[in-house]
Computed example of a mutant assay.
Amino acid sequence: METRGKPQHILQLSEEQRDRFVGSFDRVLSDIDGVLWSMEYTVPRAVDGYKALQRAGKEVSFVTNNSVRTMEQCLRHFEKLGLQVAPEQVWHPAQSIVLYLRDIQFEGLIYIIASAPFKAVLREAGFQLLDGPNEFIEESYQSLAKTIFDRQPVRAVIIDVDFNLTSPKLLRAHMYLMRNPECLLIGGATDRLLPVAKGVNIIGPGPFASILVEASGRQAVTLGKPGRELGELLIKHLKIAEPQRVLMVGDMLAQDIQFGRQCGFQTLLVLSGGCSLEQLQAETSPDLLPDYYADSVADVAQLLGETPKAHV
């Protein structure tokens, strides 16, 4: 769907525009962090927006770049907020990578740079992983060479969030990619910055993945937002016949909105997380501009004629 002029706030739509918008999508794909909750807060009444969507007959799924949080932790948090969500409604990079590897019938050893929960998902799926080094090495070329050079038959390198990322891990990953021209490079989350609190960002996994892409000359298969391969995977496994009848909801322009637009989905930006109104108004790239925006998903309940109820 092409954006026509500036994005519109959903609560400023006319009654005719509102009815046309609500009737234009059957499925909602939503981000989680910054949309429902973050590390330090829960978005007030956002859960009411999802309940209203479900009551309106919309299919709701969640697509997050956060694989550090386990599926069990995620589902418990949904339940705590009073939202019933099944495991098959939640998509994250580790799960998407498992599906992708199965689709291509991948066999072989994987070198992985990621969090422990991320690795656990792949191990539980039956894949053989190699990681490390997980300890400090002596700062000498001799010690480095012993750490990064080996004869392991690695057929894929995967990189996602790793809070213990080190130079030797990147050097080792690069070595595997350069030694085997057929070795796959697969990326999870692409975020260049991770918003951990209002106005506080830390470096995300994106820049580190970019180092491997630039150094190896390979294009990564990206199974986090805004990866094209993730979009193809979702469309296939969710049996989406008409992408234009999907609404992508998120709080990040570069991840959520760009992802939605390149998949052919409609897009709704919420200002409850990583993007401010000032940043939205300053954005000029058509690929990053949403079709609509809202203060939060709570506005969706009001749009659908429901009065959000305060939570204790």
Rank of each mutant, 00 (worst) to 15 (best):
A125F: 06
A94I: 06
Y111P: 02
P133I: 05
P133C: 07
E138H: 08
E139Y: 13
R102Y: 02
I137S: 05
G132T: 03
L99V: 11
I112T: 14
A145H: 15
G132N: 09
A145E: 14
I113T: 10
Y111I: 10
I97E: 02
L109C: 04
F118I: 04
P117S: 13
A125Q: 08
E138Y: 10
P117M: 08
I97K: 02
A145C: 06
K119S: 10
P117D: 08
R102V: 00
R102N: 15
D103L: 02
F136C: 04
F118H: 15
G126I: 02
L129G: 12
Q95L: 13
S140I: 02
S143I: 03
L122T: 00
L99F: 10
Y141W: 14
F127N: 06
I97W: 02
E124F: 09
L144T: 07
L109K: 14
I104D: 00
A125D: 03
F106N: 07
F106A: 04
R102H: 14
I113N: 10
Y141P: 00
Q105K: 14
K119T: 00
I112Y: 03
R123L: 07
L99W: 13
I110A: 08
Y111R: 05
S140N: 11
I113W: 09
L109E: 14
L144D: 02
F127T: 07
A125H: 07
I112L: 12
S115E: 09
S96W: 01
V121P: 04
L129W: 08
L99A: 09
A120K: 15
I112W: 02
D103E: 15
A114S: 14
D131E: 15
E135G: 07
D103A: 09
I113Y: 06
I97A: 03
Y100G: 01
Y100I: 04
Q128K: 14
Q95E: 12
Y141D: 03
F127P: 07
Y141K: 01
Q128H: 10
L101I: 11
V98Y: 06
I104F: 00
V121L: 06
R123K: 14
A120I: 01
E139K: 11
N134T: 05
D131G: 15
I113D: 08
Y111K: 04
S115W: 14
L129R: 11
E139H: 13
F106T: 11
G108L: 02
Y141H: 08
L144V: 01
F106K: 08
L101G: 12
G108I: 04
Q128R: 14
I113V: 15
A120Q: 15
P133T: 06
I110D: 04
V98F: 05
Y100M: 01
L130S: 06
I137Y: 07
S143Y: 04
L109P: 03
F118E: 10
R102T: 07
F127I: 05
L101D: 10
A145F: 12
F118D: 11
Y111H: 09
A145D: 14
L144A: 01
P117K: 13
R102G: 15
K119W: 01
A114E: 05
Q105A: 13
Y111S: 03
G126H: 09
L122I: 01
F136A: 14
F118K: 06
S96T: 14
R123G: 01
P117L: 12
E107T: 10
E135F: 07
F136Y: 09
A94L: 09
S140M: 03
F106I: 11
G108M: 03
Q105Y: 01
E138V: 08
Q95M: 10
E124A: 13
A145I: 05
L144G: 03
A145R: 15
L130E: 11
I112S: 12
